[in-house]
Nucleic acid binder design. Sequence first.
DNA 1: ATCGTCTCCGCAATCGTTTGCGGAAAAGCG
DNA 2: CGCTTTTCCGCAAACGATTGCGGAGACGAT
Lengths: 347, 347
Amino acid sequence: MKKTNITIKDIARKLGVSPSTVSRALKDHPDISPNTKKEIQELAISLNYQPNSVALSLRQSKTNTIGVIIPEIAHFFFSAVISGIEDIAHSAGYHVIITQSNESYEREVMNTKALFNSRVDGILLSISRETSNYDHLQSLLDSNVPLVFFDRMVDSLNACKVIVNDEQGAYEATTHLIEQGYYRIAHLAGPQNLGISKNRLNGYKAALADNKYMMDDNLVKVCGLGTYEEAEAITNELLDYRFPPDAIFSNNDVAAYGAMTAIKKRGLRIPEDVAIVGFSNWRFSSLIQPALSSVTQPGFKMGQEATRLLMKQIALGDDEEAITETISLKTNLVVRESSMKKKKVVE
Amino acid sequence: MKKTNITIKDIARKLGVSPSTVSRALKDHPDISPNTKKEIQELAISLNYQPNSVALSLRQSKTNTIGVIIPEIAHFFFSAVISGIEDIAHSAGYHVIITQSNESYEREVMNTKALFNSRVDGILLSISRETSNYDHLQSLLDSNVPLVFFDRMVDSLNACKVIVNDEQGAYEATTHLIEQGYYRIAHLAGPQNLGISKNRLNGYKAALADNKYMMDDNLVKVCGLGTYEEAEAITNELLDYRFPPDAIFSNNDVAAYGAMTAIKKRGLRIPEDVAIVGFSNWRFSSLIQPALSSVTQPGFKMGQEATRLLMKQIALGDDEEAITETISLKTNLVVRESSMKKKKVVE
DNA sequence: ATCGTCTCCGCAATCGTTTGCGGAAAAGCG
DNA sequence: CGCTTTTCCGCAAACGATTGCGGAGACGAT
């Protein structure tokens, strides 16, 4: 039961040549005679020789591997990002090591250290919710490890970043409701300590302002938990108003779904009486009745762009200046029944 | 901008000692005098020395890394599995390399080869939908690479397997429908080249048989794609029968949702006219109207168990016989409105 | 003074692969 | 035939860390 991985030396011994010759023959080096070359290559195939990448990495100080640190894998958006990362990385011949911080600062630090020790060629990172000290990341930058942030980034650090333009997404969603003729548009906001929630609220406000709508603070309700039940309760408060909203833009799809439930339970129609637009375009959003309009976040594309940036940085010569690009990805409003008052063919 | 990873040699040079001394000092070897040891350790810390794991891997023929080949990451069940894998692997000091086959045979072969080349210490694998040739896996086993299948496994291969007891899940789901008083129960089956689909079909058949229900082949329809649209169309065929089914057990939740749509479009009520039970308990299943009964698969636990098995195998001495355990995890039926004809409080 | 015994450290090989350099044999040329 | 050129291949060092072995010097014992 011995592990018997065949090496270049094994081939060399069997053929009575030196390892260097084998190495050269396998990569079609002109210094090797056609005969020897053929012999070696055939033996290599028949023995199913597979080069040891570990040795290669050591020799070339290049692992062809990138590391990813992500808050949570079991999350649709992040798994889409991972797929995007994989897509680009693999076609560039890179492996991907995934690690999860589980929203823990300590885990994040451990992971950065571990990835550094395995000498990955670069790191893609979305910081954990807990992280507020960035020494571990600064030390990566100091060691010249290519680093790209995605989604959740650190403003103060001098690195590449790929983010989603939440404000623009919220702006478009709100504008869409305005264009559909709704005039009293409420917003179910997210917890305001999160940058993304704030940005979405800002986009909502900006759209109202640009269309000369008056801002009514009573129409903005914070859903701290973002759960279905909470949103249903809060929506009921809104509907109890003397002049209730005729449209709701929600910070996320689950809350939007809670709002839909509250509306339907009162016998109101969607979108005739109250329209709904969500955020994130969860998978279920196209399946529910009525189908929920939502703002898609380009997770897959984000992964791709972040990886492209990383590849660019890795390819950089040691003497060249590091790049610090920031890519802001456009969100995309997917209009479905829940907000289509006018007859209109979309999607 | 030179990449300046400090090595043991750097420390040795700076202190005028040999690399061996540094190595020993850092691991507290008794051969080194306390003075030297202290000096070396302090310098190592102040230089922020991080051992090069690549060199270590080469030296010890052990990478402390395991590879995962998974059909698709952006899938709730599989990301739960990954989390379970990470959980165990990390606490055992292992890294995890994730690769996706995207349900493609070719990709799967490429990935196994790549993982083998990086000399991972073991591989966790769920085969792609396309895979029907297992040479690449056999060759892994021949090379003595520890291998554990999860979820989708290959019966004929002699390796560890962690599976969900699909048959039991299907049996319970079908039995539940029978207990609710439905008497003409159809099954939307999955592609029959997949073991899991076959097992679910078998569970369905067994439940019918155990309850003296006659098996009617017309009520079993294969949904090869597993998409929403396909299921809707196929369900329409079923409903067109002179004696249509009054309950449907679906091989997966998306197909179940397609079936629900077909039923609702005909003005039939769920669960009064037709009941539905799905499989996998997707996140949306609790949100749709009516909420969909479904069989949950313990993804996180599956990842944990598979990784535990792999660790056990890796720890095995080269002379010991390989183990070939199979762990079967119990599923759990979550009953919701879509199949609750009788008044009953569940969940 | 001589020998033995510790203490502390360095040499060199090793993991598998690559690559600059140099050298032997073969071939070409006058 | 003698010389140069070409062809083909091996030597050895390198990547970074580990480890068996051996050796120099200090120290104690006889």
